[in-house]
Write a protein that binds this DNA or RNA. Structure first.
Lengths: 343, 343
DNA sequence: TATTTTTGCTTAAACGTTTAAGCAAATATA
DNA sequence: TATATTTGCTTAAACGTTTAAGCAAAAATA
């Protein structure tokens, strides 16, 4: 049981060279002879040498850790983004620390403190729904480490951002519904103070206007987009004097809640009311009817977030031209908007 | 822009005392006067001092990081366990690093190396389906840091384990189906080499025997328990000369696949065939019909795993009495086993 | 051959903490 | 009053690396 870990000094002793030489040999420094390098690597392997990450991080000032903050890991979108971030960063020798905010501003602040305390080299984050106060994010910036936001996070912080074109996606959804013959299209949106949700609302409104459909105030409601709130807001829409014949909901979970309610009320989806979600969570293809939704290219978002981070750390501090990457999303048509009759 | 971080030396300089005194003051050492402590803490706050975690970890040999390995974070079970681990450990000043194996043995080995490289103080893991070779887990043990397994991981490694009583759960499921009047009960189980799945199979077989039901080889199949394989194995069962009137499936995703197939074939669930899953994933209550399943108390599992870790680090190396905690699971009855007619 | 450059290492300091050892002053005990 | 104990600090080493500076020997150049 080899509890005492082997260090570069142990290797140095075996070969009768200095620890510095060993360190350099392991990093393929050009000033070390091929012969010495080979010997060092051989002995390192023999002694099962594992570099002490803490020591090198302390000395070099780089922890080779990247913090990731997401509202939750259980959603497929976020776990897919995380997986792709991880793949890209691992190749470059970085490891990631994942934290969840559970949509709580307070937890998010804690997470940021935790990550800074852990001396991460950068943070990739998607903000909690609650988050309005950005002072903790300013704190990250003031530490001088890269901050990359994705999905929830477009704002005035002046940092890199990767997301999808929410405005166009909304527009596309409304046009899709119109092509199915829908005449009164409602929108259960997220909170306006979050820019992505605001953009979805703008896209919805502009499309409605362009095609001269009714854009009554009652047809546009804001929601926390949880499953429960989806039910609730759907109920409100049904209670209207003139209920909609289509509902576009800015989140799949809320769309699911709405769908459950409609089924309970024996309202046929899509023939009575068409339903469209957002996010393309796996369950959208599992429920009955399957739910039309928007695929957000989580793989690309993750990869791009990681690549943006890597660019940032490689870059000299000056000449920081901001990355703002907006991807086109994809409409996945499923049963909940496949109306049989067309008008 | 205060890029230079303040260290204990800076605090020491302000107060004209030694860095050591500052360190001790911050740790409430009894040999430091109350007056000095107060002064140190005041200055620390003024200078916005953030302890350098790497330095203290290097010196003390404790990183205050715990590695967590799960097959994936997207399943509700694992993300709930993680969340509870995090809550318990955060209170004790530990942070967690989450890694996913994606059910791949190779990725799992990489994760272990990564975590050891990051100098974690312990590892809490649930093994990938593929994992049979335990040498990487032996590696953790040989490093002398605590290893706690949960859910997937009961085995002969001789480490702490937290899980549910799979045998009893299976038994309970079969009895439940019998009480509904089912006479030919099939089981789509996981791979036998994973102990939890083997236990579920044993529970199923013993219950079938106890109640003198048919226990033909054809009624018991092994599966990877993915959604797709669930469909496939269900298809095989339907193709039997004498198909079952109930199917108990050792994983919810596979149960969902089976359900989809049954619906496509216009076989009524539960009246033609009863269906029961395992894991109580959220979608089990969202699909039509809702799926009866087993709730595994992910909250408790997470908490207990974390607590077990804390006990281990506090404990002197000797006198290690092994923790093997087996929780009772809970049957959540839903529509997929609510047969209207009883025989 | 004399000088410069390159090669291949070594020495020593540094990263920011923690902690064992030590010591003077203050306080308690005999 | 003399001795022992406690208090409140300091000094210095250590954790395992990295890296700037330096230096002798070998190789290249003049």
């Amino acid at each position: 049981m080899n509890k005492k870990k082997t260090t570069i000094k142990d290797i140095a002793n075996v070969l009768n060279i200095s620890a510095a030489a060993v360190s350099k040999a392991l990093h393929d420094d050009s000033r070390i002879s091929a012969k010495t390098k080979a010997a060092v690597k051989r002995v390192a392997k023999e002694l099962n040498y594992q570099p002490n990450h803490l020591a090198s991080a302390l000395r070099s000032g780089k922890s080779k850790l990247v913090g990731v903050i997401v509202p939750r890991t259980s959603s497929n979108f976020f776990s897919s983004v995380i997986q792709n971030i991880e793949e890209v960063l691992n190749k470059e020798g970085y490891n990631i620390i994942i934290t969840q905010s559970n949509e709580s501003f307070k937890k998010e602040c804690n997470n940021i403190d935790t990550l800074l305390f852990t001396q991460v080299d950068g943070i990739i984050a998607s903000m909690a729904n609650e988050t309005v106060d950005l002072s903790f994010y300013e704190k990250i910036k003031s530490k001088g480490i890269p901050l990359i936001l994705f999905d929830r996070g477009e704002n005035d912080l002046n940092v890199d951002y990767i997301g999808i074109n929410d405005y166009d996606s909304s527009f596309m959804i409304v046009e899709h519904l119109i092509s199915k013959g829908c005449k009164r299209i409602a929108h259960i949106g997220g909170f306006r103070h979050t820019r992505i949700f605001n953009n979805r609302i703008r896209g919805y409104v502009d499309a409605i206007r362009k095609y001269d459909l009714p854009h009554e105030d009652d047809l546009l409601v804001e929601s926390s987009l949880t499953l429960e709130d989806g039910r609730l807001k759907m109920q409100e829409l049904l209670a209207l004097d003139n209920p909609p014949d289509a509902v576009y909901i800015a989140g799949d979970y809320a769309a699911l809640g709405a769908l459950q309610l409609l089924k309970e009320k024996n309202i046929n989806v899509p023939n009575d009311i068409c339903l469209i979600g957002f996010g393309n969570e796996p369950f959208t293809s599992l429920v009955t009817p399957t739910i039309t939704s928007i695929h957000q290219h989580s793989e690309q978002i993750g990869q791009l977030a990681a690549q943006t981070f890597l660019e940032r750390v490689k870059m000299d501090d000056l000449k920081q031209t901001l990355n703002k990457i907006i991807l086109d999303a994809e409409l996945i048509e499923r049963d909940s908007s496949k109306k049989s009759k067309r008008y």
